[in-house]
């Protein structure tokens, strides 16, 4: 599904360079549920943005679903994002002057789906996240948990192969976080690959695989063996993990 090799990204901050990602090698199989952890500034968001083709790395190669992603035109990148990838953000990122329904339907607008059809589908996805009755509400009239569920409905409406979430529960209380995580588990169970950034250990513990970043390096990559309930450790050799 995902194959990163030698991905680096750095920023010039005044005098010195900040290395957000250093020579990252990472493979993710279809259907995996991966949590990315690490302290603030360790490069989690940068990695997720590279995965989501929102950001381009300085070096390295990225293959998504068999397609080489480097040197993609911005228009092609937009089409890949639209078809393959769903995004969920910590701050929801809903368009504030549009209703919940219009927000959810927007990705289909960029697929040139007719208005009637996409509104119907958006309603279906809103129902799925339990917010059918809030379809006409503006984001300002929704609670944090509701907003995030709308954002998830928007991410899912194109039925992407890959769902990327950057601290989706960071702004939510425990019980709402629970609801959100349940939605992620549900789509993952249907075969969608999920990568989520979090610094909450109990959230990360729900993933099948947990990657820890420190200063732009992968310092830990553990897979929980669902069958035997034990955890295999890739710490010693993260580069060659597959």
């Amino acid at each position: 599904m995902i194959d990163l090799s030698g991905i680096s990204k750095s920023y010039q901050m005044g005098q010195h360079r900040v290395h957000a990602l250093r020579e990252i090698n990472l493979q993710i199989q279809p259907g995996e549920f991966v949590a990315i952890q690490g302290s603030s500034g360790s490069g989690k968001s940068t990695l997720l943005n590279v995965l989501g083709i929102l950001d381009t790395p300085d070096t390295g190669s990225y293959t998504l679903d068999g397609h080489a992603i480097e040197n993609l035109s911005t228009a092609d990148a937009a089409r890949y994002r639209n078809r393959f990838i769903g995004f969920v953000f910590q701050s929801f990122n809903l368009i504030h002057h549009k209703s919940a329904l219009d927000n959810v339907a927007l990705p289909l607008y960029y697929q040139r789906v007719a208005r009637k059809q996409r509104n119907l589908k958006a309603l279906e996805y809103l129902e799925h996240v339990g917010l059918k009755d809030r379809a006409d509400h503006k984001p300002s009239e929704l609670s944090g948990g509701q907003s995030q569920r709308v954002a998830i409905a928007r991410a899912l409406i194109t039925q992407p192969a890959l769902l990327l979430a950057d601290e989706p529960t960071g702004a939510l209380d425990t019980s709402t976080s629970e609801q959100i995580m349940n939605l992620f588990h549900e789509v993952n169970a249907q075969g969608m690959t999920v990568v989520l950034v979090t610094h909450e250990p109990d959230i990360a513990a729900q993933a099948h695989r947990s990657i820890v970043l420190r200063d732009g390096d992968i310092v830990s990559d553990r897979t929980r063996d669902a069958a035997r309930h034990n955890i295999s450790d890739h710490d010693s050799d993260p580069v060659n993990h597959s």
Binding site: G52, A78, R79, R81, N82, N93, L106, P107, Y110, Q111
Partner: peptide, 16 residues
């Protein structure tokens, strides 16, 4: 800016 960023993230091409 943010709205345009959101649109781009969910698949708006620069042309659109």
């Amino acid at each position: 800016r943010r709205e345009i960023g959101i649109r781009k993230a969910i698949g708006a091409t620069p042309g659109s």
